[in-house]
Design a protein around this nucleic acid. Structure first.
Lengths: 222, 222
DNA sequence: CATTTCCTTACGGTAAACCGTAACAGGACT
DNA sequence: AGTCCTGTTACGGTTTACCGTAAGGAAATG
């Protein structure tokens, strides 16, 4: 079994249970951080001490509070860790259940398992830890049943997200166009942007921009 | 200390910690349900057996799954319980931190304490349970620092929420007006609705309707 | 009863969204 | 080179949002 595991989870109510599982699995060294920044520090310290971690279990969303943090999400944390210890095994344990976001965790961040917090998630988490130890890949808790081949949501790319974010900030088409020109994102004509928004509206079955943003918020895209 | 406590919480990762706290506090009888409907059944059963619960600890949001449920949220559950056992003490333990929604829990549902899930929430929960046992009222975990007297968000009333919900569904002004007429909600002239939306835009510093809905979504108003 | 005040509704002009069409440019293929 | 195809941009007309102003009505005030 894993020797040294780091848990990044802000809610104490949840970290208690996660740590309990790790103890049940006879993990010797278990560390726990409540902030992403602290997580990166622990990883770096362990590396320089020549006692690196061999597993990370992290949440995705962390509450913001008085403390100023560089890394504000599990994605940020994993991305930063990948720069210093890319081979570290990573399990994400979060409430998020949107296939769009989860897929990118596997594809872009190279995590080995995703466990969705739910009514039977402790068992799922245990299985994910054991599976990861056996070098299994792309482990998904069983209440999530989407396929990695299904193209539906993967087609929404960062260009669309950019448009949606600016719309959600109250920008009008012309300002989005200007913003894109300034950031040299193409296409950036008002007409092209308009057309792209139209596609999104068809895709999400939205009546108008207001509706579209409401849906995008529900999907967690912005 | 309380003799018989019911915990309504869908995430097993969290219920484990809550139950642990109750055990530490020497509560004899602890029951746990993962669905609101089950919670109401337990309450009713206990009543008819003449062994009623004396405390409920509930989450607000419950994941939906294959099971069909009448009660889908903690609010629903408390409302239903208030009809059969209004004097039951109720503590809400949730991640929600919007003062607008929390205030209505105290004012409309008569809960005794609200604890926000956070980095030190187990200690807060323990204090809330002990305070409730000593008949304290309106207990609020310390990371939430809004005042009950502050009028800011309480002014947003159900009329505004209705408008925002319909906007979020992609309705244009005229359709909202028709809908309001059909449901005999007044005022329902397009102009009045428009004015009210305008007030909301000023209040939330929104540039336009799209921006407004994005903000409303962030505040959890819709 | 008259007046004030507040709320609701109506109206009109401008800005932006919405939607179809077409011009234009670059790349691929013959 | 010529054509097709595709993606980008431009344009114009209609609808809706946006915003100020004013008319009408009901309740409150004196």
């Amino acid at each position: 079994m894993f020797k040294k595991v780091l848990v990044a989870e802000d809610l104490d109510s949840i970290s208690i249970a996660v740590i309990q599982i790790l103890e049940d699995l006879k993990v010797n060294s278990i560390d726990h951080v409540k902030y992403c920044d602290d997580g990166l520090l622990k990883i770096k310290k362990a590396l320089s001490d020549n006692e690196p971690y061999d597993l990370l279990i992290t949440d995705l969303s962390f509450k913001s509070d008085h403390r100023k943090n560089q890394l504000t999400s599990g994605e940020d944390l994993v991305e930063a860790i990948n720069k210093v210890q890319p081979q570290l095994k990573k399990i994400v344990f979060s409430i998020e259940d949107k296939s769009y976001r989860i897929k990118s965790l596997f594809n872009d961040l190279g995590i080995s398992a995703y466990v969705s917090k739910g009514r039977n998630s402790m068992e799922e988490l245990r299985k994910a830890i054991e599976g990861t130890y056996r070098n299994e890949e792309r482990i998904l808790s069983s209440d999530l049943s989407f396929s990695f081949n299904d193209k539906s949501l993967i087609e929404i790319e960062s260009y669309d997200i950019s448009i949606l974010s600016l719309l959600a900030k109250g920008y009008i088409l012309e300002h989005i166009s200007n913003e894109f020109k300034a950031m040299s994102i193409t296409p950036n004509g008002t007409s092209s942007i308009e057309k792209r928004i139209n596609k999104l509206k068809i895709y999400f079955k939205a009546n108008n921009n207001v509706h579209l943003i409401a849906i995008a918020k529900d999907f967690g895209l912005v």
